[in-house]
Every structure is written in structure tokens, then in C-alpha cells.
């Protein structure tokens, strides 16, 4: 024994889990959707995603190094890469590079590093970036290329399913909904939209992968998707102007949001009970904003609003303590 013995308090073993494993696990879960977006949007998708990832990682490194003056930067933990992918997924494939870079700066700089970096941010950074761009550059952010338009800037654009749904509600004309792609096309992703909004089925596969690998639990995605399906189902039955549940579930950023954005560790509640409240509220808000709000898409706003409520949910939702049932019975 050459060195001094090490003394520490138990436990002396560790599961081997790490931030990197979780973050890269989420990235891996996003790969099928990423490949699909490259297939549907070609060069544009590649440019947007690459710019977004590189600038997110760069800003994380630069802010940690030059502004916060940290000795160790956290770019290798995968969280900036993940933010980059998610931010890219939230953009149309014909977005100019400079807008993407501004989005990344806001996402990482304002959304994350201002609060102290990983683990401290109250709002999902990628969504902060996206909503900032949506409000600042509404025109660029809402002209989506149609699926299969693989050019970058001069891609052919068209109306997205969400825009059609909104138009149907505003005009009260059910026939508008006939232009919606078929359910199969919606599932596979043959329709216009942001990069990550197209292929619902691949996003679901990614989500399942994360649940199986125990990166996330089922509570948030299931409660969001369930609430949206239920509410839009009721609305559709009451008035066919409102689109059918499957189209609603597969359109826009709902799948991406429910599986990857709302489940973000840092900004979602800790306890299953709280996660379900959070999920149901996001689902309900999404349906409300989509159908009666000014914007066609409500997912990002719904998630950001509920992010703000997360600390409150954490305060009031406590896990069931061991022996609690008996304690209550004893009181009676």
C-alpha cells in the first residue's frame, strides 16, 4: 500500500450513471428524427442543425470562460449539444444563419448561463431561444418549406397542418381541413414544418428509447399526449371545425415538446404526482392556445408557462412517504 487510505462516508459505490450518459442518451434518442429531417429537408436541415449545435456549444464555452471565468467549462457534458439540436429542431429549414446564431445566443446566454449554467435555469433554454426568435422574426420563423424541399434558403414553402387547422377555426369552414395530410403522412412526417416537427413516429420511438433506458419516466409525455388527445377529441366531436385528435397529436411541435422539451430534467417537477399535474396543464394550455390563441402553435408557450410553475409544484407535491398510508389511517 503506497498511498494513504481514503476515508469517506457511505455509500462507497456508485451506479456509474452520469450527466453525460443522460444527455447523450437524449441526443441518441433524437437521432432517428434527425435523420428523418435530413431526408425531408436535405441541405437546409443540415445547415440549420449544424449552425445551431456549433453556436450553442461555442456560446456555452465562451460565456463560461470569458464572462463567468470558470476554470472548467461544461461543454463536454452534452447539455449544450442537446440544446443545439432541440433549438435546430424548432426552426424551419430555410432560416438564415445569422438568425440561428442569435437564437443560440439567447438560448444559451439568456436562457441558461445567466442563471448560473446547467441545473440552474428555470426555463428550457431551447424554448427560450425559439420563442425569442418567434416573437422577433415572426415572418422568417413561420414560413415553413414543404416536405421534400431539400434546398436551403430558396426552398419551396407552403402551409403547415397547424396553419390549416387555425384557418379552419377562424373561418369556420370545415372543408379547409380536407387539405390536411393523411394520418399516415402525418405520422411519418410528410408535411411541412420545423425540422423536428415532422416525423411523429420517430420522435415517439426516441421517447420510448428514453423511457426504456430510464432516462425519463413516462409521466410527463403520457399526461401531455393524453390530455391533448382527450381535449381535442371532445372538441372535434362537439364541432368538426376542430381537427381530429390524431392530426392534432402529430402536427406541429407537440410530439417534440411532449417527449423532449417538457421532459427536460432541470425545468420539470421532481415527483410523479407533480409531473402529471405539469403534463396535464401543458396539454390543456396547448389546446387552448392552438384553438383560441393568436399563434397557430401553443406548445412552446405552454411549456414555458408551466416551467414557471415548476417550483410551486415542487413545493406542494411531495412524494408519498414510507408509512404515510398507515399514519393517515391511524389519525382517523
Amino acid at each position: 500500500m503506497s498511498n494513504r487510505l481514503i476515508v469517506s462516508l457511505s455509500p462507497h459505490v456508485h451506479s456509474g450513471d452520469s450527466i453525460q450518459k443522460n444527455m447523450y442518451g437524449v441526443c441518441l434518442a433524437l437521432v432517428p428524427a434527425l435523420v428523418a429531417s435530413l431526408y425531408f429537408f436535405g441541405l437546409g436541415a443540415a445547415v440549420v442543425l449544424l449552425t445551431s449545435i456549433v453556436s450553442c456549444v461555442f456560446f456555452e464555452w465562451a460565456i463560461a470562460k470569458f464572462i463567468l471565468r470558470r476554470e472548467r467549462t461544461t461543454i463536454m457534458d452534452g447539455s449544450a449539444i442537446l440544446t443545439g439540436i432541440l433549438l435546430g429542431f424548432n426552426m424551419p429549414s430555410n432560416l438564415p444563419v445569422w438568425i440561428i446564431i442569435i437564437g443560440a445566443l439567447v438560448a444559451i446566454g439568456v436562457g441558461k448561463m445567466t442563471f448560473g449554467g446547467l441545473g440552474q435555469n428555470p426555463f428550457n433554454p431551447a424554448l427560450v431561444g425559439r420563442v425569442f426568435l418567434l416573437i422577433s422574426f415572426p415572418a422568417q420563423m413561420t414560413t415553413w418549406p414543404v416536405s421534400g424541399s431539400v434546398e436551403y434558403l430558396d426552398a419551396q414553402t407552403g402551409a403547415t397542418p397547424l396553419a390549416l387547422m387555425k384557418w379552419a377555426i377562424q373561418s369556420g369552414d370545415v372543408s379547409v381541413l380536407k387539405d390536411l395530410p393523411s394520418s399516415v403522412d402525418m405520422l411519418v412526417g410528410v408535411h411541412g414544418g420545423s425540422l423536428g416537427e415532422v416525423s411523429a413516429i420517430l420522435l415517439l420511438i426516441g421517447c420510448l428509447f428514453m423511457i426504456v433506458r430510464k432516462i425519463i419516466t413516462w409521466h410527463i409525455p403520457v399526461s401531455i399526449l393524453g390530455t391533448v388527445a382527450l381535449l381535442s377529441g371532445i372538441l372535434h366531436m362537439a364541432n368538426p371545425v376542430y381537427a381530429d385528435p390524431i392530426s392534432v397529436l402529430c402536427s406541429g411541435g407537440l410530439m417534440l415538446g411532449a417527449c423532449f422539451m417538457a421532459t427536460d430534467y432541470v425545468t420539470s417537477p421532481m415527483v410523479p404526482k407533480g409531473q402529471i399535474i405539469y403534463g396535464v396543464a401543458i396539454g390543456a394550455l396547448t389546446v387552448v392556445i392552438r384553438n383560441w390563441g393568436a399563434y397557430p402553435e401553443g406548445m412552446s408557450f405552454a411549456i414555458l408557462i408551466m416551467n414557471a410553475f415548476t417550483p410551486l409544484i415542487n413545493t406542494y407535491c411531495k412524494p408519498r412517504r414510507f408509512g404515510e398510508v398507515i399514519r393517515k389511517e391511524a389519525k382517523k
Binding site: 456508485h14 450527466i19 441545473g119 440552474q120 430534467y265 432541470v266 421532481m270
Partner: peptide, 14 residues
């Protein structure tokens, strides 16, 4: 095995 890995910030993964 004996040495602990340096702690990183809590990511609130629950």
C-alpha cells in the same frame, strides 16, 4: 474504485 467522482451541479433529474 475508492475515489469519488467530482460532483457536478444538480440537474434535477429526480
Amino acid at each position: 474504485e475508492a475515489r469519488r467522482t467530482a460532483p457536478e451541479p444538480c440537474i434535477r433529474c429526480a
